[in-house]
């Protein structure tokens, strides 16, 4: 049973990650390749605030969110002036820099050794110490985070994001400050990515830089694209699909010698087929150009 709860915890974490990237990539049209960096900054910030400053899980997370949003401005302000492909490359560069910093700032992050022994989060004095409890805990947090996103998207600000995505020039002609809108969307998406970072750190109770690589960014982006960019439910469906799919393939009886490879092949093939038949994703609204 714990196995099922574990998968559901992972889905709840990835759902918020993908949904926060969707705010940036799907609703605002900014194809960002550094979301795992913000996820990582959120995880490390929460962990360090808990272990070095002795804060509880929630105060640490509450501080990690604005901190991550603030750090995202380091990349947003210079790179949002760039157009299309160059913006994508700039965010990729930021992702690699953050990974290197996490890996090499040994005094702060312990680098490749990672940080073990992260305290168990507790809620109203009750420690969240079993997988089932953590499932309830993480589902509650992600529901809260997704509710915030839902309100954002339905608000006039959400309408503005889609307007900027659809036609920047027309938006500027209607008096919208396009660079400011993009920067705000980018920082909001980054800040929201710190929440799953905290959830992940509290769940694993050990973090190291390998969880926050470019590969992880691609995985999150896949969840957005496969689920359907620019739709609220898309990234949730996409992350459930991507987290559960390898597990489902595990159930197929394949000889051990080829199992791992065959699973990878099947996985890749399914993604290719899905993109062929539904280029806008399962719930699709918006197609990247």
């Amino acid at each position: 049973m714990n196995y099922i709860w574990h998968i559901l915890v992972m889905i709840s974490i990835y759902a918020v990650l993908a949904a926060s990237l969707n705010l940036v990539a799907g609703y605002t049209g900014l194809l960002s390749l550094c979301h795992a960096a913000f996820y990582g900054i959120g995880a490390y910030a929460t962990t360090l605030l808990m272990m070095q400053m002795g804060l509880g899980f929630f105060p640490a997370m509450a501080l990690a969110v604005p901190l991550t949003a603030l750090l995202s401005l380091l990349i947003a302000i210079p790179s949002l002036r760039l157009r299309g492909d160059y913006f994508v490359l700039a965010t990729l560069g930021f992702q690699i820099i953050v990974f290197s910093l996490l890996y090499n700032c040994v005094r702060l992050t312990r680098g490749p050794y990672g940080i073990p022994g992260i305290p168990i989060p507790s809620l109203f004095g009750v420690p969240v110490d079993t997988v089932f409890k953590y499932f309830l805990f993480s589902t509650t947090i992600s529901t809260g985070a997704l509710a915030i996103l839902w309100l954002l998207i339905r608000s006039p600000f959400g309408r503005l994001l889609r307007a900027v995505r659809d036609d920047e020039v027309a938006a500027a002609a209607l008096g919208k400050n396009v660079p400011a809108v993009k920067t705000m969307a980018f920082a909001l998406g980054a800040g929201l990515a710190a929440i799953p970072g905290a959830m992940f750190a509290g769940y694993m109770r050990y973090i190291d830089p390998t969880s926050f690589t470019v590969g992880e960014t691609i995985f999150i982006l896949s969840a957005v694209v496969i689920g359907g960019a620019g739709s609220f439910w898309g990234p949730l469906v996409g992350s459930a699909f991507l987290v559960a799919l390898p597990e489902a393939l595990r159930l197929i009886q394949i000889p051990d010698a080829v199992a791992a490879n065959l699973r990878q092949v099947t996985y890749g093939l399914l993604l290719v087929v899905l993109m062929r038949i539904r280029p806008r994703g399962i719930m699709g609204e918006y197609e990247f150009k």
């Binding site: 309408r159 500027a172 919208k176 620019g230």
Partner: peptide, 28 residues
């Protein structure tokens, strides 16, 4: 002034062929 500030100042620019935002509704 940048484009959006000029719009605030009272310049209404109708882009060639009249651009709309495809994913927004007319009300939006």
């Amino acid at each position: 002034l940048p484009a959006h500030r000029r719009a605030h100042a009272g310049i209404g620019y109708m882009i060639q062929g009249g651009a709309v935002f495809p994913s927004l509704t007319p009300d939006d």
